[in-house]
Amino acid sequence: MTDLAPANEKLLATAGALFVSFPHCVTLGMQYLGNVGRKPTLKVEWRDDLVGNPASGVLHGGVITSIVDTCSAIAVTAHMTELETIATLDLRIDYLKAATPGKAIYCTAECYRLASQIAFTRAVCYHDSPDDPIAHGVATFMRDSNPKPMLAEGAA
């Protein structure tokens, strides 16, 4: 399932660009780096105003939560042929080890089950390789959570 091409390549690219354009993501400087199959990758550069512990310079856990939430949501859209509004139902982050101050954080996510009403996702955050993760996140999303479309008709 994870090696499959996106259900709608254009929609995934549009959703990736759209989700990182949301004000909070812009505040964090979130970038959409693209996708391998149905797995998108996002990046947030280390910045001193994103630090949680001023003594160590380690990024705030909230940055991890935001990148996991956003990347996981984009991963759900990789399975959609048409964009629907989704809402995070729950999210759990395991902090595997401290992030290194000064280094950018990457997040790669996948939706491993798209059921009729719920999407299930998992994500890893890392500096250099997903095999050496700093955090792991699992989330569920409610599908079709709002009738208000996130995109103008025909945009993807």
Binding site: P23, H24, C25, T27
Partner: peptide, 27 residues
């Protein structure tokens, strides 16, 4: 604050932002 918004069409606070706020509160 506008900069804390996620989905702009609703608009709704970003879920990650809510998480960060709560995690910070807990700490």
């Amino acid at each position: 604050a506008e900069r804390n918004v996620g989905n702009t069409t609703l608009p709704a606070l970003h879920g990650g932002l809510i998480g960060g706020f709560l995690e910070n509160a807990a700490l």
